[in-house]
Design a protein around this nucleic acid. Structure first.
Lengths: 220, 220
DNA sequence: CCTACCGATCGGTAGG
DNA sequence: CCTACCGATCGGTAGG
């Protein structure tokens, strides 16, 4: 997890995956199952989403799904990795953005996400479930946030000329990341009342100006 | 839903509920079931939490739980209302805060929430699940956010001398509310790395200063 | 508030 | 990748 463009930022994967010839070891079937799994988990959640429904959308029986992924839990893990790969390929060839450029990239990502409610819903539902006891996606999200916090903290420090170790910088980074996730929940519940891009843009602008204006202070 | 102190802000209800004599119609048993339900839903989610486990923690069989609440869905609805009432009683006697005072109240609420991971986890898990299809808590959260957006927008407008109809004011309110929810997910996954209060405080300060400084602009 | 039971659904396995 | 099956668990009901 090193890209800022992680997960709720992927391009529709079907195009890239289906355009190529069948990958080694029936990768096409696997991709179809993963697409079906994402839509089912988005609509029902992981706990409540059944292998039978995933299988039906992928055109097979639930035993067929298990043949490909071994267990429901391994299917979820594969889905999380699959989405990550799709996102990384979006950035391939370009250099990973830094400083103010990364902050602008975050805003563009949020705006793009407004066009992909399905992916956002799957992400939000799985994130919400992930804090339950022994949830298989917990480690994924924990390390995702760890990476995001590092990236955004660094970018904010560079963009404002402050030290990344200052507590204000870290608080600001955590707040921006939190806002992006919380806005998705609000938006999914009432899309007309929430402009995720506008809110993110204003928050980032307000925070960077605040950090430029206030005196360097806290350290740990 | 008119209070800002809603839900992830309640005082431990057991004290108040158990101190009084049995309420009319076995309210004490109901409260014990509701407390058990909150802990089970926090740990397993609503979809994955079973009536049998709730019943066990409340010291009865699952048929007993159904005797009191009729169905699992009605138990959830009752739980959401029950938490709301506990929060409202916290504010009783005081006037509902407004303007800058409400913004300070939000920060205090976030700081207090850092002492009650169980309630925060139940809230976060149910919020995440609520965006799934036909989830019984969906209406609750939708109207909760509607109320919060109105309150925070009004408070921000009062605190900065701007018009509550401006798009910047609404974007700022949505961003602050979103940050509070998103920070909870981050915090639940890694409590040591996230200071919810510090992040909320910085965001509110940055946003209010930004709104005071920038020219009145957008209207709808 | 319990015992006893119901039909439905679940994830996973066997064996091909 | 399927048919057939397994044990387990689920929410809810009957009847007291």
């Amino acid at each position: 997890m090193t890209m800022p463009d992680v997960w709720p930022a992927a391009a529709p994967s079907s195009g890239a995956a289906k355009a190529t010839r069948p990958q080694k070891r029936s990768g096409k079937r696997r991709a179809e199952i993963l697409d079906a799994a994402m839509s089912v988990f988005a609509e029902r959640g992981y706990a409540n989403g059944s292998l039978a429904e995933i299988a039906e959308r992928a055109g097979m029986t639930h035993a067929g799904v298990l043949h490909h992924f071994g267990s429901k839990e391994q299917l979820l893990i594969a889905l999380l990795e699959y989405r990550d790969e799709a996102d990384v390929s979006t950035l391939e060839g370009r250099h990973a953005p830094e400083g103010a450029e990364l902050l602008e990239h975050l805003i563009r990502t949020v705006e793009r996400n407004e066009q992909r409610p399905g992916i956002i819903q799957a992400y939000s539902v799985l994130l919400g479930e992930s804090v339950t006891d022994t949830h298989p996606a917990r480690a994924f999200f924990t390390s995702r946030f760890e990476g995001l916090r590092t990236m955004v903290t660094t970018a904010l420090a560079e963009a404002t000329g402050r030290d990344p170790g200052e507590s204000d910088i870290r608080a600001a980074a955590n707040g921006i990341i939190g806002a992006m996730d919380g806005l998705q929940e609000q938006w999914l519940l009432d899309k007309q009342s929430v402009d995720m891009g506008a809110a993110t843009r204003l928050l980032i602008r307000a925070v960077t100006e605040e950090l430029r204006a206030s005196p360097p202070d806290g350290r740990a």
